[in-house]
Write a protein that binds this DNA or RNA. Sequence first.
RNA 1: GUGGCUGUAGCUCAACGGUAGAGCACCGGACUGUGGCUCCGGGUGUUGUGGGUUCGAUCCCCAUCAGCCACCCCA
Length: 432
Amino acid sequence: MRRTVEPLRAVKGMNDRLPGEARAFARVEAEARRVFGLHGYGEVRTPMAEEAALFSRSIGEETDVVGKEMYVFPDRHGVPLALRPEGTAGAVRAYIEHKVATVEPVTRWFYLGPMFRHERPQKGRYRQFHQVGAELFGAASPEADAELIAMIHAFLGAIGLSGVRLQLNSIGDDACRPAYAAALQAFLRAHAAELCPDCQRRAETNPLRALDCKVPADRAILASAPEPGASLCGPCREHFDAVRGHLEVLGLSPEVNPRLVRGLDYYTRTTFEFLAGGELGSQNTVAAGGRYDKLVERLGGPAVPAVGFAAGIERLLLALGATEAAAEGSDLLVAALGGPARRRALVLAQAVRAAGLRAELDLRGGSLKSQMRYADRAGAAFALVLGDDELAAGKAKLRQMGPRGGGAPGDEIEVALDAVPAELRRRLRDVR
RNA sequence: GUGGCUGUAGCUCAACGGUAGAGCACCGGACUGUGGCUCCGGGUGUUGUGGGUUCGAUCCCCAUCAGCCACCCCA
């Protein structure tokens, strides 16, 4: 195994997912498709790259996601493109571009795929990570928020994630948020000298973010800061209370967290997060979202309200403590000895597959013993022994394998070569 | 981007300033054509990488890369 050339490695923060892990991943995706499908959501697939301007306009120029973490590069004509750092912007762009609002009043979309942010990787946070998310366009009512949140809860339950906490808040809309933000900023500026450098910065760039500062001294000061929940205008208050009420009806009990804010600029009114314990450490937000009633308009579309969310698949898997999922073994492993028998075995395996059963040949050849051992460790349900004698007689020995790594010796019967697929199918039915 | 910890076989780990071992896994044999159990055999490694100190470095020093943890930020 001497290395003569330096092997290339995966890009930092971008990980391979080998089949064992990929299966666990695929299961989460399959549940997303199933549960979202039950709620009337259709899958959209938008490009991985968009014009960078789309993200700065929607997510916000001043956010870290756009300002510091986006992969931006010029295309051949010098147009700045960006690898998508999240899914909502692309979905909204597609919604506008295809004039979807003109053909249907309410649109339910979900998406699923890789996102890219140039951050320092750590557990539950990677430069290429994967999100599943959904967007509900055209409904301003509190029912929409509640339905979406309940759907996420159902999805988390479906993948086996229990013990999640739901936090809920409202950050107001154009009518009340500006005044609130100004009040909060004034408060922060007044206390700037006592606050940590981060909060001094936040006071100027994104005052709301200061609310969830983790520095103890800051928390003490911020305890008396104005909270968004207390400054809502009448309609926002009404909307928020109705969302809470609907969630209670649906059997969910959200914790109201008056300091829950969102990092992306496009949110209005409802914000929420699902938190999980487990092995996630500080990256314990597993799904998050909120309402964004002005975004479609802001990106040049009609005035269509919307609410959406995204969940990080890697984080879901971590929260689940998902271990690798073993591959299902073949229905049949063909062990053939000698050239003529091995040629016949190629054909035989093909015939079994054509009958809809999984067949595998031990491609290494080797002794019958080693081929049988392979059949065992590969988890094959049956093994077919094909040697010169069998070939001459037009038959093969079909042996039932016990459970992998142990169990009773299997029964073995002779089967005519042409009858192998049918006989295998019959026996598999008995076994399973 | 900031701070800290860690890098030895496929995995989990050991060792010592004198170029590395164990368990599991893997491969083979006992059984010239029948898996598992047992026994026997096989180490599969430039000790992450590059320098430095030294007669000699896996060990000490520096750098770098990667992973992890916290912060920042976020899903």
